[in-house]
Design a protein around this nucleic acid. Structure first.
Length: 678
DNA sequence: ATCCTCCCCTAC
DNA sequence: TAAGGTAGGGGAGGAT
C-alpha cells in the first residue's frame, strides 16, 4: 500500500478466548475470584473511582511541594465545594483548570454526572453544542473559564452568574473558535509519558502508570483571545516562557497563555489552517479513544449488557443450572413467551417530559447540521412517516423532513430508564432474558394470563418512565418477537398457535431474525420475499446455500418453529474494543499511541469482567487502493479488512502483554508503517 | 474426525 | 463537522 493510504488505517483489537487447547471454551476465560469487579459493568465506576483517587493523590502531593498550601488550605480553598466538568476547548486548558481545582480545594470530574458536578466550564462552543449542553446540564451553571481565574485573583468564590454562557455571545465567537482548535502531532507540550514514548522502556513506564488510569489530559493549545478582556485577568503579567512549570500559584495561572505574544499568535494561525479538517481524530486528541467511547451510541448499546449484569447480578446468580431449572415446566405444557420492547427508545426518553413534541417529528442524533453526515440513531413515528429512519444521514433526514426536531444523546437518561424498565419486568417475572437496554424476553409459562401480565407491565412502564412499550405474546420467542413488530407502537398482540400459518404467510422474510442484508439479497435473487414463498424451498437447498445450521433455522423460522428457550444467564466468551471513526495516522507514533490506547481499554475491560484471555486478535482497516475520502465525515470509507490472531501460552489481561502482541501482529500486516524503530 | 484461524453475518 | 461498537454464531479450508 502507499504511504498515504497507510496513514489512513482504522484498527481494532480484540482479546478473545473462543476455544482452548482442552476444547472447553468456558475454561478459556479464567474467572478471577479476587477481581475487584464482578463483571465489566463496574468498569466505569472503577475508572471514575481511580480518577478521583488520582486527583486526591495529586492534591495531597501538591500541598506538600508548595510551601504556601497546606492540607487545611485545600479544605478551605477558594473552590471548596466546587466540582467542575470541563466541556470542550477552554483557555486555560482543562488540564490547567484541573490543576487549579487540585490546588485550591475543588474537584475535577472527568465524566459528567449531574450528581457530582456543580459547574460546567465551557470556553466557547457552537450553537448546536450549546443546545447539547443545555439538554444535559440539567440546569447546572455553564460558565466561562474566566470565572475560575477571577476567583483565584480575588481569592474567593465569586458569583458565577456574570460568567454564564449565553447563546448569542457564543454565536459571535464561533468563527474564531473553530479555527483555533488544533493539535499538531509532535508539538505536544506536556510531559505525559503517553506522548513521549519512543522506546520500550518508556512504554513500560506508561504501562505501570496506566493501571492507575490517569485522568483526561488535555493538550488543547491556546488559540484564541479571551472572550472578556475586561475580566480580571493577569494577562500582561505573564509571558509564554512561564509555560513550562505551572506550580498552581496565581502567577502561573495563565502559564501557557499566548496573550500578548505576537509570535505565538502567528504560529497558532498557521496550525489552524493545517488542522482545520482534522478536528476530532486521533491526530488532534491524545485521549481520542477514551473520549470517543464516551460519545459513541453504539458503544453504549454494546456495553449495556455488562452494566445490566452488574446492576441485576443478584437476579442473575451465574448459576449455570439456573436456565434449565427455570425452563422445566411440565412436559407438554405450551410455553407462554412475552417479548417486550420500548417504542423508539432513544427519542422517547429524551422527549418523555415534553408532551408538546408528541405530534412533531423528533430524532436523536449527534449533530443538527443540515448538511452533515451525522447518523440518526432513533426517530419517532411522526418522523418515520417522513421517511426518516435510524442510520439516515442528518442531511438526508432534513431534506425529507425540514422541520425535524433533533436532540442530542443523553446516555445517563437511557441508563436510568432502562433500569426502571428492568426493575418493573423483574418484579413481574423471574425468567427474563435481557436483549438490550429496551428489549427483553419473558417466560411466563404457568404464571397466569400472559396477555394480562403484558398489559400490566406495559402500563407500569408507561406510568413510571413516561415512555411507551409494546409487547408480543406467543408460544415461542420467534413468534413473540414478530408479534411485537405488528403491535408497535404502544400496543400488544397475542398470536395464537392456530393462527401462526396465516400470520406468517405474507410476512416479509426480512422480518425474520437472522435474515440480514446479505441473506435477504440472496433470497431476493431467488425471488423469495415472504415466509410463505420461503416454505416452498426444501431444507436441503437452504442448507446447501446457507450452511447446515442457518439453513435449518431458516426452514424452521418460516414455519414459525423456534426451539430456543429464554436464557437468563449468558456467558462472556470474548472481550474487545474497536474504533472505526476518526482514525487518521501521520506516522508510526500516531499508530503506536492508538494501539496502546486500545490495549489499555481491552486490559481494563478484561479486568472489569474478571477474565483473562490467551488469544489476541488485531483487526486493521486499510483504505482500499484508489478509494477516495469517505462520504461520512471522519469515517473509514471503503477499506480492506485485515485480521490476525495469536494464541499465547499463558492467559493475560496485561496491557503491555497485549500491546506487545498487537505490535507483532501489526508488523505482520506490512501496511507501510514500520515498527522496527520501536 | 476434530481442531484452529480467518473470515462473514447478524442483532441490538 | 462527529463519535461506523460489541459480541456471538457459524462456515470454509487447512493442519493435525
Amino acid at each position: 500500500m502507499s504511504s498515504k493510504s497507510s496513514s489512513r488505517a482504522a484498527a481494532s483489537a480484540r482479546s478473545s478466548r473462543k476455544r482452548s487447547r482442552d476444547q472447553n471454551p468456558r475454561k478459556n476465560l479464567r474467572a478471577k475470584s479476587s477481581s475487584p469487579f464482578t463483571d465489566f459493568g463496574s468498569y466505569m465506576v472503577e475508572k471514575n473511582r481511580k480518577l478521583r483517587a488520582q486527583f486526591q493523590a495529586d492534591a495531597s502531593a501538591s500541598s506538600l511541594d508548595t510551601n504556601n498550601h497546606s492540607e487545611s488550605d485545600q479544605e478551605n480553598g477558594v473552590f471548596h465545594g466546587v466540582s467542575i466538568f470541563v466541556d470542550g476547548f477552554t483557555i486555560p486548558s482543562s488540564q490547567e483548570l484541573r490543576g487549579y481545582m487540585l490546588k485550591h480545594g475543588g474537584r475535577f470530574e472527568n465524566y459528567f454526572s449531574r450528581h457530582t458536578v456543580t459547574h460546567i466550564i465551557c470556553g466557547n462552543l457552537p450553537d448546536s453544542k450549546m443546545r447539547n449542553l443545555r439538554a444535559f446540564s440539567h440546569g447546572l451553571p455553564v460558565v466561562r473559564p474566566e470565572w475560575v481565574l477571577d476567583c483565584l485573583a480575588a481569592n474567593r468564590l465569586l458569583n458565577c452568574a456574570p460568567y454564564r454562557l449565553k447563546m448569542s455571545e457564543n454565536s459571535t465567537r464561533k468563527q474564531q473558535k473553530i479555527s483555533c482548535y488544533f493539535h499538531h502531532p509532535g508539538t505536544s507540550t506536556h510531559n505525559d509519558a503517553q506522548n513521549t514514548i519512543n522506546h520500550d522502556e518508556k512504554i513500560a513506564a506508561v504501562a505501570s502508570g496506566c493501571s492507575e488510569r490517569r485522568g483526561q489530559v488535555s493538550e488543547e493549545s491556546p488559540g484564541e483571545r479571551r472572550a472578556n478582556p475586561e475580566s480580571t485577568c493577569m494577562q500582561d503579567e505573564f509571558s509564554p516562557s512561564d509555560a513550562a512549570g505551572s506550580s498552581g500559584a496565581p502567577s502561573s495561572i495563565v502559564n501557557s497563555s499566548y496573550l500578548g505574544n505576537e509570535k505565538f499568535k502567528e504560529s497558532v494561525e498557521i496550525n489552524c489552517i493545517e488542522a482545520s479538517n482534522q478536528v476530532h481524530s486521533t491526530l488532534t486528541d491524545p485521549n481520542f479513544v477514551e473520549n470517543y467511547f464516551k460519545s459513541s451510541r453504539l458503544h453504549f448499546i454494546g456495553t449495556w449488557r455488562n452494566r445490566y449484569r452488574k446492576r441485576f447480578s443478584k437476579l442473575l446468580t451465574g448459576d449455570k443450572s439456573r436456565n434449565e431449572k427455570f425452563n422445566c415446566y411440565s412436559i407438554g405444557q405450551k410455553a407462554a413467551i412475552i417479548h417486550i420492547d420500548m417504542d423508539c427508545f432513544f427519542v422517547s426518553v429524551i422527549t418523555r417530559n415534553q408532551p408538546d413534541l408528541l405530534d412533531k417529528p423528533v430524532a436523536v442524533c449527534h449533530s443538527n447540521n443540515p448538511r452533515g453526515t451525522a447518523e440518526i440513531s432513533s426517530a419517532n413515528y411522526v418522523a418515520r412517516g417522513y421517511g426518516v429512519r435510524a442510520g439516515t444521514f442528518v442531511r438526508d433526514a432534513k431534506a425529507c423532513c425540514p422541520h425535524l426536531v433533533i436532540f442530542p444523546y443523553d446516555f445517563e437518561a437511557y441508563e436510568e430508564v432502562a433500569e426502571q424498565f428492568y426493575s418493573i419486568i423483574h418484579k413481574h417475572c423471574s425468567k427474563v432474558q435481557a436483549l438490550s437496554c429496551d428489549e427483553a424476553f419473558l417466560d411466563v409459562t404457568g404464571c397466569g394470563n400472559p396477555e394480562e401480565i403484558a398489559s400490566t407491565i406495559r402500563k407500569e412502564i408507561e406510568e413510571t418512565t413516561r415512555c411507551t412499550a409494546s409487547a408480543g405474546i406467543a408460544e415461542n420467542l420467534l413468534l413473540a418477537r414478530l408479534a411485537t413488530r405488528s403491535a408497535k407502537p404502544n400496543g400488544q398482540r397475542f398470536v395464537p398457535s392456530e393462527k401462526v400459518k396465516d400470520y406468517l404467510n405474507d410476512l416479509p422474510i426480512v422480518a425474520l431474525p437472522g435474515i440480514g442484508h446479505a441473506t435477504y439479497e440472496k433470497l431476493k435473487s431467488w425471488n423469495i420475499h415472504t415466509c410463505g414463498q420461503m416454505r416452498t424451498i426444501p431444507k436441503e437447498a437452504l442448507q446447501r446455500n446457507f450452511g447446515l445450521k442457518i439453513g435449518d433455522i431458516l426452514w424452521n423460522y418460516c414455519r414459525g418453529i423456534d426451539n430456543r428457550t429464554v436464557e437468563i444467564v449468558q456467558e462472556t466468551k470474548s472481550v474487545g474494543a474497536e474504533v472505526n471513526w476518526g482514525i487518521r495516522f501521520n506516522d508510526i507514533m500516531d499508530c503506536h499511541h492508538f494501539l496502546l490506547s486500545l490495549c489499555k481499554e481491552v486490559s481494563l475491560r478484561l479486568r472489569g469482567c474478571g477474565v483473562q484471555g490467551r488469544t489476541i486478535t488485531l483487526k486493521v482497516k486499510k483504505r482500499k487502493k484508489g478509494a477516495s475520502e469517505p462520504v461520512k465525515f471522519m469515517g473509514c470509507g471503503d477499506c480492506e479488512n485485515m485480521s490476525r490472531s495469536v494464541t499465547v501460552p499463558v492467559v493475560t489481561d496485561n496491557e503491555i502483554a497485549l500491546l506487545r502482541i498487537a505490535k507483532q501482529i501489526f508488523a505482520s500486516f506490512y501496511v507501510g508503517m514500520s515498527y522496527s524503530n520501536l
